[in-house]
Simulated scan of single mutants.
Amino acid sequence: MKYGFYNAVLHDRSLDEAIKVAADLGLDGIEINSGGFLPPVHIPEIDEIIADPSVAKKYLARFEGTGVGIGGLNCNGNPLHPNPVIGSKHAGDVRRSIRAAAALGQTRVVTMSGLPGGEPGATHPNWIVNAWNSAALDVLDYQWEIAAAFWSDIDQLAKDNGVKVALELHPQNLVFNARDIRKLVDLTDATNIGVELDASHLFWQQADPIAVARELGPLIFHAAAKDIRINTKHARLNGVLDNGFRRLSPDEQRTNLGGDEWANEWPKDSSWDFVALGRGHDAQYWADFIQALDDIDANMWLNIEHEDVELAGLPGLEVAAAVLNEARQLAGRD
Rank of each mutant, 00 (worst) to 15 (best):
G114E: 02
Q143R: 02
E310F: 13
V309I: 14
L10I: 10
N173P: 04
Q156Y: 13
E119C: 02
D208K: 10
F63D: 03
D155P: 03
A331K: 05
A135P: 13
G35S: 10
W262D: 12
A135M: 14
P116T: 06
K183Q: 08
N173E: 05
L317Y: 02
L167W: 08
R108C: 11
W272D: 11
S249F: 13
I46A: 04
S14K: 06
D180G: 08
I70F: 06
C75N: 03
T111V: 11
I32H: 07
D288S: 12
S14G: 02
G4D: 02
C75D: 00
R179Q: 11
Y6V: 15
K159N: 08
G121E: 01
E17I: 13
D141Y: 01
E318M: 14
G114F: 04
D189V: 14
R13G: 12
F37D: 06
D297E: 02
S34H: 06
N264G: 14
D24Q: 14
D28E: 09
L73K: 04
Q253G: 15
A331C: 05
L157C: 07
E31T: 00
F5D: 07
A56T: 05
A292Y: 07
E307I: 14
I19S: 02
S134Q: 15
S249W: 12
I70L: 11
K233S: 01
A312E: 01
A287H: 00
F5M: 05
D28W: 06
N177E: 09
R108K: 15
F274E: 04
T123V: 11
